[in-house]
Simulated assay, not measured.
Amino acid sequence: MKKVMLCAVAFGLTTAAYADADWDYKQTHQWGSLSQKYAACNSVNQSPINIENTVKAELQPLKFSYDTLIQSIQNNGHTVQVDFAQGGVLELDGEQFELKQFHFHSPSENQIKGKSYPLEIHLVHANAKGELAVVGMMYEQGKENPMLERMWKHLPKQKGEKVVLSKPQSVNGMLPQNKEYYRFSGSLTTPPCSEGVRWVMMKEIQTASKQQIKQFTDLMGHPNNRPIQPLNGRVIVEN
């Protein structure tokens, strides 16, 4: 059952789940009590976390091959989700994880050494077994971000609205030049909070303009970040 839940999220089926959602960000501490299917939200290896007290390790370099295009952008009421054609791949732990979608949170869900950022992106990947790997990147206020600017032109204004791009956009320019990262085990940050997710947080901080951040927060109308969860003995490694 856990794998089925993970597959559903990874393969872009979150829209229906969000549309029927019986949860919101006003009751994050109650998610695990809302339904039996959300019981994992009360478990011990949950995300997001505060990344600190890390352990240095010889982590394998991340291998991204994002030969794919953005096809659609949708507003599901909890976030803006961007969906792709096939072709984007992350090689992690000797396995191929295909890029399925990415979405945004403001303020950031994870923190780095106690610091929260105004915007965080989660790039969701799945391998052939339906296991998930999420790559996170932080944005701080600064220069306008060209990739975000191209996407923001197509932001769906209404909950449930989906914009299909007439000219699909490349995502090759989204990744940072510096591929150093933090690594930890965690969960989905929204119900059903399924665990076993391989988390990768990029160290390089991106920038987004004040206006770009405001566009997203105004569109959401509310913070869409889950509070920090306890580590419960988990180890965070970095290269």
Rank of each mutant, 00 (worst) to 15 (best):
N127A: 04
C41D: 07
D67R: 15
M201T: 14
K56A: 10
R150V: 11
I70P: 07
Q101V: 06
Q229R: 15
D83T: 13
K26I: 08
T28R: 05
M147A: 15
E91S: 05
A126Q: 01
V134Y: 00
H29I: 03
W152V: 02
T68G: 12
N53P: 05
G130N: 13
Q211W: 06
Q177M: 09
S194I: 06
K115C: 07
L69W: 10
W31V: 03
W199S: 02
V135I: 14
L69P: 03
V235H: 11
R226V: 00
A126S: 14
S108F: 05
N225D: 09
G173T: 04
L69K: 12
N225C: 04
N225E: 08
G87A: 01
E204S: 10
T54N: 01
P146V: 11
S43D: 14
L62N: 00
C193D: 14
P168Y: 05
N53D: 15
S35T: 08
K100W: 09
I228V: 12
Q229G: 08
Y181M: 08
P227F: 02
I236R: 02
Y117M: 04
H78D: 11
D218Q: 14
E109I: 04
F104L: 15
A126C: 04
D20V: 15
A126N: 03
G221E: 10
S43P: 01
L165W: 08
F104E: 00
N42D: 14
R183E: 10
G233R: 05
K129T: 02
I228A: 13
Q96F: 03
S43Y: 15
I70F: 03
V134S: 00
K167L: 11
W23F: 09
V200C: 05
P48A: 05
K3F: 13
D93H: 04
K115Y: 02
F184G: 00
C193A: 03
Y18F: 15
E180N: 12
S166V: 09
M201W: 13
Q71E: 15
A21I: 01
L62E: 07
G94K: 02
G196V: 01
Q81K: 14
P156S: 12
L34W: 08
E109P: 03
S209F: 00
F102T: 05
C41G: 02
I49H: 01
Y181A: 07
V9E: 01
N239T: 10
H103M: 06
L219V: 04
Q71L: 13
K2W: 10
L148Q: 06
H29F: 13
I213H: 01
I121N: 06
S65F: 09
A57H: 00
T217D: 03
Q169T: 14
Q212K: 02
A19M: 11
A10S: 09
V80K: 10
E120S: 06
W152D: 09
M202N: 03
N145W: 00
K153I: 03
Q36K: 14
S108R: 07
E238C: 04
E204Y: 02
E131S: 03
P107G: 01
Q74Y: 08
N76Y: 12
E109M: 08
K167Y: 08
T207D: 09
